[in-house]
Simulated scan of single mutants.
Amino acid sequence: MPALSGVSRIAGVDEAGRGPLAGPVVAAAVILNPNQPLTGLADSKTLSATQREQLDREIRANALGYAIALVSAADIDRENILNASLRAMREAVHALRPPAHRALIDGNRCPLDLCCPAEAIVRGDAREPAISAASILAKVARDALMVELDAQYPGYGFARHKGYPTRVHLETLQRLGPCPEHRLSFAPVRKLLDPLECF
């Protein structure tokens, strides 16, 4: 969708998937269209899957711009989850077309080397509509990826728990061991690789 002339393009930025034991971390950046306000935007964690998917379609159809970026489990192990999350957010902002004039980042720190000024907002996904929209796109995109990984690595239940450390996931890890999408640097997975390690 073309940018509106004279409109300051403010991007909301958020990520999904910092806590799981498997799969990528996914970030989204969204520039909402002030002439097409969306109702129902909220922190993605407070919405049902059906609500998120409906809003995902509306955001994609009406936003001035959006972009999604991910960092793989292997790169999370190399960089650590904080740096991987910040990189995914930076890449999402840089991929926006049209580019953002300013970015509002969910959390308490901003990625370095952004292409525009940025402000970190704690609990921004519940306070800023553009960040709420980004949280929804990131969550829906990541959930879809985990469903794909469930087909690629059957038996782990990724489609159900999305890689989070549920009881079922932990029991499956004990039984099957990690797959290539598991984050080997995360304690519950690392412990399986080195049972003598203490935490």
Rank of each mutant, 00 (worst) to 15 (best):
D56P: 08
D75Y: 05
A67S: 13
S85K: 02
T39K: 08
A3Y: 12
R57N: 14
E53H: 13
L70N: 02
G40Q: 15
G23E: 00
N33G: 01
L47Y: 15
N83H: 14
T39A: 13
A28D: 03
N80V: 08
V26E: 04
A27C: 01
E58N: 11
A16K: 06
L55P: 09
A61N: 15
V7R: 06
R57K: 13
A27F: 09
L4F: 12
T39C: 12
A29D: 13
A84M: 02
P34F: 06
A42Q: 15
V25L: 03
A84N: 01
P2A: 13
T50D: 10
A29K: 10
D43L: 04
L32N: 03
A27S: 07
Q51M: 12
Q51Y: 10
A61D: 15
A42T: 11
Y66A: 05
L38Y: 08
A67T: 07
Y66T: 14
G17Q: 01
S5F: 09
E79G: 01
R9Y: 10
L21W: 03
K45N: 04
R60N: 00
A73E: 08
R57H: 15
S5G: 03
N35H: 13
S44A: 00
G12R: 12
E53P: 12
G19T: 14
K45P: 08
I68N: 01
S5Y: 13
R18D: 06
Q54T: 12
V13R: 10
G19P: 00
E15M: 04
L70Y: 01
A3C: 14
I68E: 06
G40T: 14
A73W: 08
S85M: 00
V26P: 00
G40R: 15
R78M: 09
T50G: 05
A16L: 11
R18N: 08
L41M: 06
D77G: 03
S85N: 01
L41H: 09
A28T: 06
A74S: 14
A22K: 08
V30T: 04
V25A: 11
G6R: 05
Q54Y: 12
A27M: 08
N35M: 11
D14N: 01
V30F: 02
T46W: 08
N35T: 13
V30P: 09
A49G: 07
L64N: 06
N80Y: 06
V71F: 04
L82Y: 12
P37C: 10
Y66W: 14
I76C: 00
M1C: 11
L70G: 07
S85Q: 00
A49F: 04
Q54K: 11
Q36K: 14
D77Y: 03
L70C: 00
R78W: 09
N83D: 09
N35Y: 15
L82N: 14
L47H: 12
G65S: 00
V13Y: 13
I76M: 07
N62Q: 15
V30H: 00
R60Y: 04
L41F: 15
N80F: 12
L32D: 07
E79H: 11
G40I: 14
Y66N: 10
A42S: 10
